[in-house]
Design a protein around this nucleic acid. Sequence first.
RNA 1: CGGGAUGUGGUGUAACGGCAGCACGCGUCCUUUGGGAGGAUGUAGUUCGAGUUCGAAUCUCGACAUCCCGACCA
Length: 413
Amino acid sequence: MRQSALFAKTQKQLPKDETSTNARLLLRAGFVHKEMAGVYSFLPLGLRVLNNIANIIREEMFAIGGQEVFLPSLNPKQNWQQTGRWETLDDLFRFTSLYTKTDYALAGTHEEIIVPLVQRFVSSYKELPVAIFQIQNKFRDEKRAKSGLLRGREFLMKDLYSFHANEQDLDRYYQVVKESYDRIFKKAGVEAVYTFASGGTFSKYSHEFQVLTQAGEDTVHVCGACALAVNEEILREQPGCPQCGNKNLRREKAIEVGNIFKLKTKYSSAFQLTYKDERGENKEVIMGCYGIGLNRLMGTIVETSHDKRGIIWPESVAPFLVHLLQISDRPKEAEAAYEQLQNAGIEVLYDDREEVRAGEKFAEADLLGIPWRVVISDKALAQENVEVKERKSERVELVKLQNITDFLRATNS
RNA sequence: CGGGAUGUGGUGUAACGGCAGCACGCGUCCUUUGGGAGGAUGUAGUUCGAGUUCGAAUCUCGACAUCCCGACCA
């Protein structure tokens, strides 16, 4: 991608009351544009990051047997009345069509759609278990949207729902998802702590994946002995680590990037979702649900990976692997390097702008946070070299022009 | 939802109740060219609605919006 054609522009200044780090950096760097509180447009760079995160998640969901669907945001009122949540869910967006006077919900979660859907296609124990997921926009009428991408009113979420013949099978799959989530967060470049949280009325615990950072709005107590954490919301009722009993926990602020939950029969009951067992008897299907907020994960990566000059993207989610800066008097050499990298299948943002000075290009490159910076300069070209620098390091390496592809491939693998 | 702060060109900011100014951006020209350059010139603005006043960006009331704190967050 040529930066001269990139749709977006970096900014030097932002309103002083925009204080959250992820909002400031992502807005300044032109990854997103705020439309209103808690609602963002994703610009080309931001969407590339979001898509990379989605692909990491999608790959893992397929690996644990998930089948991808795409459910509607616009939901019939009736389904939400059937579970009682039309009245009880505070952050449910509800509205009435001005033309037909029909009431609708804008879904903030999809039990009300997925359960009747599964009922339509599953009727025997032979068809269980089944796991269905989607990556889709959720709407929640947050009383207070805040902290940039961390708490929005419209946001992208991966939601997985699993359906089982009995609780043992749910327990088994719950653990499978847990391990899958560990891999997802690790790949995305954040350290998520498995955290015991409130399970509501259906189970003792749910589990959250919490990334420790001052920017977080949750408070967790981390157990040094077994590397787990407990959300403060349940620590009052049950002091100490639920796993090992350790009473010496460390109090930390954290961002909840994922949550897994045993729903058991709550929604199967509401919709009479049953299956026939081996003896032909009707039994209620046992459910689990598992969420990851993609926007929030993107914001969390920025919160935990930046410096005073800008964002530092992990390679796995970066919008491009390489940022190629042309600052020499020999644009043909830069064009050739661009072509060489592209032909090798390396994703490059090529700063080909002639009118922009070197200093500004460097400052912007640091702000955008692309992992590898390759500079085509007269100084280095004199020895047939280019300058290669990793965003997270201060060291500049000289690499022969014809070897940059191999060099980046080697460091990338 | 309770409390607080703030709304001025595309962005960031100034202006005692009395001519709306500066910087960035964008356009044109000249110079400059390795860490967000300099000069010339052009472009574009007081959130909305009432009220007070000879006169309102400025004071009052209301609406809307944004940010922050708290409550809430399957």
